[in-house]
Amino acid sequence: MSETGYKPKPDNATGGLSSAGSQPAFPMRGSLFRKNLVTTLLLAPAALWLVVFLVLPFIAIAIFSVGERAPEGGYQAALTFAQYANLPARATAFWNTMVLAPIGALACLLVAYPVAYYLALRAPQRWRLILLAMIVIPFWTSLLMRTYAWMYILGGRGIPALLAYVGIEDLRLINTPGAVLLGIVYGYLPLMILPIYVSLERLDRRLLEASADLGATPLSTFLGVTLRLSLPGVMTGFSLVMILLLGEYLIPTLLGGGKVFFIGNALVDLFLQSRNWPFGSAIAITLVLVSVVVLIVANRISTRLSGARRVDLI
């Protein structure tokens, strides 16, 4: 089991992505030119890919978002902020997303923390890796299939049909905000558990002993040491889940049944059905901006907390 089996942690972006170390693992002797040539050749495909399929598309939707809808759908060049001014037209989608995403992430966190805590600090050593693998596996299996499983369970022939046997009739579970919330917790639980597990696993156990030796109750040790030191992991998990939820489409579509609309649903509608690309682009840009704000705030909180931690320990 490696810590690389899940998506990277933004608060650790430099450590996670960069290949730290002053010496290259692939040293080159010979002329400076040849050295640069090899480096360029190694990086060129990835750079090209990132530019053509990440940077340029992003610029494209930024340009589209200040354009106008062509009469037959699509895009017509313009320079207007009308699309942004029109955002309240999709207020319901924004409202649903902005309410259910934080609630969903919080619900995820409440379920995930005890599990991560158990895995990192309580689980028997030989079980730990197996249990961790059992957390990672659902994360990498199709969200569509896993959400579908809940459609099956919550649908008319699932739990409601079983409950009808014991006399509870006409129970409606699917196509409710509750079903969407359940799907969110189910889908994103692994992504929340992993970063918290990593931060708890790194925890210096001697601090727990020291806290107990100094007469702290288990509760105050937990609040003052364990929880405190794992907060960066909590923030990472929370912000990752939040950001992915902001763009979620499958869960509200399958478990919300057209009654619980997310921004993702609005985007699919605007791009694939009503073909109002400029308005859709404006929504997408707004979505990205909100995600960036979430990341920055989470990062700020993380930094402040780890700063506070350093002062506390000295």
Binding site: K7, P8, P10, L50, L54, P57, F58, A60, I61, L240, I243, L244, L246, G247, E248, Y249, G264, L267, V268, F271, G280, S281, A284, L287, V288, S291, L295
Partner: peptide, 12 residues
Amino acid sequence: AIVVPGVVIGIS
């Protein structure tokens, strides 16, 4: 590339 939601990658 990893963090941007799939829906945004798709439409852009």
